[in-house]
Design a protein around this nucleic acid. Sequence first.
RNA 1: GCGCUCUUAGCUCAGCUGGAUAGAGCAUCGGUUUUCUAAACCGAGGGUCGGUGGUUCGAGUCCACCAGAGCGCACCA
Length: 577
Amino acid sequence: MNIFDIYLDKILILIKKLSNEGTLVLPENLNGINVDIPPSNFDCDISTNVAMVLSKINKKAPIDIAKTLVDLIKSADDEIETISVVKPGFINIKFKSVYWNNFIKSINQNHIDFGVNTKEKKRKYLVEFVSANPTGPLHVGHCRGAILGDVISNLLIFNKHDVSKEYYVNDYGNQIINFTKSVYYRAREIVYNEKFPIENSELYPGDYLIEIAKNIIATNKKLKFDKFEDISKKLTLLSVAESLKLIKSNLSNLGITHDKFTSETEIIFNKEVEKVIEKLKEKNLVYQGKIKAPKSENDENWIEREQLLFKATDFGDDKDRALQKSDKSWTYFASDVAYHNNKLNRGHDVLINILGADHAGYIKRITSVVEALSGDKNKLICKVSQLVKLIKEGKPFKMSKRKGDYITVEDLISEVGKDATRFIMLNRSSDVELDFDFAKVKEKSKDNPLYYVQYCFARISSVYRHVGLDINKDLDITKFDFKYSIDEIKILKKVAEWPKCIEAASLRLEPHRIPVYLYELSSEFHSYWNMGKDDSNKRFINDKKIISNDKLVFLKIISNVIRAGMNIVGVATPEKM
RNA sequence: GCGCUCUUAGCUCAGCUGGAUAGAGCAUCGGUUUUCUAAACCGAGGGUCGGUGGUUCGAGUCCACCAGAGCGCACCA
């Protein structure tokens, strides 16, 4: 629990007591009451709106309610230095330094769990992310969602939940056939010296297919590249496997590993689609019918056909969705329904899907189907990551798959590095388009927030190194002096916000709050560090090369929060820079 | 035409599920190194939170409408 919640509980107990005594009327819902961080221009530590929330139902001015509460709060708590009522009716509290001393003591004792959200009960999560078609290496477009999914998983794991990270392999359908054909023609190019039919727009032109073909030829000496139909099955397996090898290596370069790869082909082969459709039929959610043309669409182009449909409109979707194509084969949607049923059968409490912006239109139908199968509206949460606008040499860089003119994850990592990529991609809300400027990401200055935060950790490490200690080892200190200055307490107040940051980030699955917080904390620290230039009392190591226990603990606490945050983000905390 | 996401300082963006005088960075201008890492710090200027209404003690935040940007809208995956 964080210090704000602890105080909120105190206030709730107080007003409930007053309500029982009949001196205060409480609304049914107390959720509007909160304890928060006051704006920086007020000289206080926490602030509550309780009087304003209670004002209406008690038919009293907020200020008057606040005044009566203030006396009661003050008399019940001897750690309060000042408590005041401010304009609209806020109650502001400033603690004595002993309060912060106790705070430090408590996090120094259980530093490993500091920040972990203990309010939520432990649950089983399944996070599906990336799930890019296995037709080649990952490119920059996949990157943001990949990192988002990975960090959401880290965040849930940090909060002690059970998490399975999964990749759905779309190794079935026309795109895979075209991909396999492309490998086939590349192989013929090598074996028979036959020109690759580049004019065929269905085929994949990328050079990486040559590598894939070479690898397959080298490891399958007996394979003859004569008639495509004769080897298509075998070649598909081999090509997809090669592709996945590339993708896994890309992911590993980004610092990402999945726990499970589920194959679409396998889902279809195991008749899971039939089974789930049977299940939906029992619920009367599947029927043979026609989809109506959208109003604006040209009627001439619209082909109406009767096919097997899922009643997505029962769940708020704009149209019912096709499960079967006219040749009776399953649509992508049908196998995805089966895959989600498969996920549900494995007993997860919550499913999370990370999707790219171009798949946002798909959310309604898949959440509908999960609701239909599980009876739970909130079983599946879809998180969309918006596009990344690449900027190179000051200009937007457009990728074109046809020209083979796109930036792969490999290019990206070798140019700007894993950590900078992860930190920058996460530093913004996933709801917003992101500018990714190669020049800026590579810059080693405070323009680059990654280095700014890492530098903070490195400075702390440096102090420890100077007094012969290792920042990565536990501190064995039992004796404290507990004399912290106003400037140090200011940083400790920021540290106290860490659990709140984690809570907000995990509640809304918004990991960008973590880099934003780490930047703010680092900023406070750098600021303090520079005070040491004018005031030697603020230097960590004194003239006699001695550091106080207070300062050692102070640094330790800050470094632990930074390390924990950077671990969630998935980037390093170097001791020297 | 419909759906989803977005619109906050010159630029890039935060804003903790409705709170107080809306915050950072970049850019601009001016300062800070015999001392723990200057990849740092301090100061200055810069705003009709896209627009109009509404909800209430209180709106950048919620609702409606409008404008603009991006993404999507059949058996592709």
